[in-house]
């Protein structure tokens, strides 16, 4: 029972961070800031949701369920390692392609970006 409550809390927070990522992708003004929302909102929420599911999976304990929980944990580790790498590769590609950078001063574009 207590495991179920932990699982529900973790998945709820994960969904909240997913919401933040999705709203950020829609609202932020330029490519770089959208990259922030995409890269970060995902990592933490994937971590929280998958750990919650692994906890639920371990609530009746045997070897098969332990292996499945190990695989879920491995997916988590993989995503937390792959997400910064692909964020870095994509933002570097965007910079080389010459994306404009949005600044606070209205209408005046950053000259070097």
């Amino acid at each position: 029972m207590i495991l179920n409550i932990i699982c529900i809390v973790l998945i709820g927070f994960g969904l909240l961070f997913f919401l933040g990522g999705a709203v950020g992708i829609l609202r932020f003004p330029d490519f770089y800031t959208r990259m922030h929302a995409a890269g970060k909102g995902d990592t933490m929420s994937v971590f929280l949701i998958l750990v919650g599911l692994a906890v639920y999976q371990l609530s009746d304990f045997n070897v098969a369920n332990l292996l499945v929980a190990g695989k879920i944990f491995f997916i988590t580790i993989f995503i937390m390692w792959a997400s910064p790498t692909s964020t870095h590769a994509l933002i570097k590609a965007g910079l080389e392609e010459g994306q404009k950078m949005w600044t606070r001063k209205d209408g005046k574009e950053d000259p070097q970006a």
Binding site: L16, G24, K40, G41, M44
Partner: peptide, 11 residues
């Protein structure tokens, strides 16, 4: 902390 910051900025 970073996620809470992004969430606050986005909302």
């Amino acid at each position: 902390l970073s996620n809470i910051h992004i969430l606050r900025l986005a909302l």
